[in-house]
Design a protein around this nucleic acid. Structure first.
Length: 415
RNA sequence: CGGGAGAUGGCAGAGCGGUUGAAUGCACCGGUCUUGAAAACCGGCGAGGGUAACACCUCCGGGAGUUCGAAUCUCCCUCUCCCGGCCA
């Protein structure tokens, strides 16, 4: 959520910055109007309430002195009616204000490049050269080992398309990767947590998936609960409605969860293989910081994910997302793309975002700064998407005979 | 899923329908005392909005209602705890 006070006082500044994200300016203008109007309406309401309170206090006194109460009663009845009217106005304004406020995306940082989409993202750096082969590398679904490792058909049988079953080496590798990543993150100072895969609406509003992106989520039918699209939701919401002390910050957490996404807008994309599934494993990093810590922690998280890939010997590059490609809650995002030799291109395997105070305001996560309670900064990022890492290993470590060599560092994690 | 109890400030725990945003204890912060610490004593100490700062408004799980007035009464919901059933 935007800082409404800032919007009231410095409309131009915010409007200008949000142009990068293509926000309809009339909506922004409307939000400002409502918030100002609400301020005025609240004053009217509060004056009436003050009068009501003052007059109500006279009752015990009147009764003690044996004065007549009827007149006072009548007076208060009228005030009560006026209050009801004003209250309704205030409530209507509040509802409209929150509806709009919750639908406006975060303001991009100043160093976020202009741009409409993927093609305008800026490459920051490359790590490791793309793997070279003495033969033509295959895509992961074409490897000789794949039928033994990944059962696409039966995934569909059990659920529907975009579900699959891992077997043999792939199942073991999946688990090895999860354990390896969690250990790696632990060594970088991230504390491991294990969280629910189902969350309520408040949690999803807190991190920004709702109310706007309901169609991307799997919802439980008989209860207002949703399957998490990322561990970012439960882990960040751990702190919802809490006031943290400065000593607790920065809080750095890591969590392995399955993630569930409807992929509503991706019909026909990546239908082959394991790139885009409705259910996938991910190890996530989440940090809660003071505003002056968040840039440093962001760099730490990017380094953590990049180093992890390097340790697995996987070539990758870091991309600074442009305004048009930025997610709803993010002020700044660095994507990490891993080299897939079979596809002969880089594919996203991690995404690290700083949401600044955007989620903190929605989820009311604050910290105590002197006498004030201020919103924290929240950050999240994939340590790595596990399924895509598995694919990256299959493609980068493939042999001419279609088998896959397990990276040395993972061997002690393999049974 | 069935039966019982409950939901108040960081925690514990009071609170006749009226001047209670809320006793008390602990924790915490500041001060006195002390070489320092502890103890003792004094003071402060919930959140959100509002203000230059006050004032003022809202909030005692959430919602609706009774009343001039509700933390206190009624109804609904949610959650927690105990007993039973079921089950990893």
């Amino acid at each position: 959520m935007l800082d409404l006070k800032e919007l009231q006082n410095d409309f131009e500044k915010i409007a200008t910055k949000l142009r990068k994200k293509k926000v309809d300016e009339t909506v922004l203008e409307r939000l400002r109007e409502i918030s100002l109007k609400l301020k005025e309406q609240r004053k009217i309401l509060e004056a009436l309430q003050a009068e009501q309170n003052a007059k109500s206090k006279l009752f015990p006194q009147y009764q003690k002195e044996g004065k007549d109460i009827a007149g006072l009663k009548e007076e208060l009845s009228q005030i009560k009616q006026k209050i009801a009217v004003e209250q309704e106005i205030v409530r209507t304004l509040e509802d409209e204000m929150y509806e709009i406020a919750l639908s406006i995306p975060n303001i991009p940082d100043d160093d976020v490049p202009e741009g409409d989409g993927e093609e305008d993202n800026v490459e920051l750096k490359r790590v490791l050269e793309p793997t070279t082969f003495s033969f033509t590398p295959k895509e992961h679904w074409d490897l000789a080992i794949t039928p033994e490792w990944i059962d696409f058909e039966r995934g569909v049988k059990l659920a529907k398309s975009r579900f699959s079953v891992l077997k043999n080496g792939a199942a073991k590798l999946e688990r090895a990767l999860i354990n390896y990543m969690l250990d790696f993150n632990h060594n970088r100072g991230f504390e491991e947590v294990c969280v629910p895969y189902l969350v309520n609406r408040d949690s999803l509003i807190g991190t920004g998936q709702l109310p706007k992106f309901e169609e991307d989520l799997f919802k439980i039918e008989e209860e207002p609960l949703y399957l998490i699209p990322t561990a970012e939701v439960p882990v960040t919401n751990l702190f919802r409605d809490e006031i943290l002390t400065k000593e607790e910050l920065p809080a750095k957490l890591t969590s392995y969860t399955a993630c569930f996404r409807k992929e509503a807008g991706s019909a026909g994309r990546d239908t082959r293989g394991m790139i885009r599934q409705h259910q996938f494993d991910k190890v996530e990093l989440v940090a809660v910081t003071t505003p002056d810590q968040s840039d440093a922690v962001f760099d730490e998280m990017v380094a953590c994910a990049s180093d992890l890939l390097t340790s697995l010997g996987l070539p990758h590059r870091l991309m600074l997302l442009c305004g048009g490609d930025l997610g709803f809650s993010a002020a700044k995002t660095v994507d990490i793309e891993v080299w897939l030799p079979g596809q002969n291109r880089y594919r996203e395997i991690s995404s690290i975002s700083n949401t600044r105070a955007f989620q903190a305001r929605r989820a009311r996560i604050r910290y105590r700064e002197g006498k004030k309670n201020l919103p924290v900064h929240t950050l999240n990022g994939s340590s790595l998407a596990v399924g895509r890492t598995l694919i990256a290993i299959m493609e980068n470590y493939q042999n001419e005979d279609g088998t896959v060599t397990i990276p040395e560092i993972l061997k002690k994690y393999m049974p």
